[in-house]
């Protein structure tokens, strides 16, 4: 019964000609939306917070790392707190909408964080996000 009917309808084929168009479209989407991480940074254990929000504008982010020994890293260079000002001034000249993402280790003394915040204020980089993890 079934065989007979199939024969009648002939060969069924799915049009695959536009498959590559779809694939390339997806490919281009992925390539455009991917932001490559440029820096390695320092090893930090982030503090946890319930009010953690996601930053949507990924392209405007500049990272500052502070590890548990108080070392500060910007663009993979260990810097002194006062050098942060100069580096962020340059970043702001390139992109005025920059958001500073302070990734500080939870065990670090507040002193180091305070110095970085002061340096950012000096550079007029006023939009700051303290990196935290979601609290479970």
């Amino acid at each position: 019964m079934r065989m007979q009917r199939l024969k009648k309808e002939g060969k069924i084929n799915i049009p695959t000609a536009s498959m590559s168009d779809i694939a390339f479209l997806l490919l281009i989407f992925f390539m455009v939306s991917t932001v490559f991480r440029k820096e390695i940074g320092l090893k930090v254990t982030l503090p946890e917070a319930r009010a953690t929000e996601r930053i949507v504008k990924t392209r405007n982010i500049a990272h500052v790392y502070i590890d548990k020994n108080g070392r500060i890293s910007v663009d993979d260079v260990i810097v002194q707190p006062k050098d942060v000002t100069l580096r962020f001034k340059l970043k702001l000249a390139e992109n005025p909408a920059i958001i500073s993402h302070v990734k500080a280790d939870k065990r670090v003394k507040y002193d180091y964080v305070d110095k970085v915040l002061e340096a950012l204020r000096e550079a007029k980089a006023l939009r700051v996000v303290f990196a935290t993890d979601y609290k479970r």
């Binding site: 204020r121 996000v129 935290t132």
Partner: peptide
Amino acid sequence: DKGLKIVLPE
């Protein structure tokens, strides 16, 4: 990237 946002005073 996630965290707690704040705007520093000028």
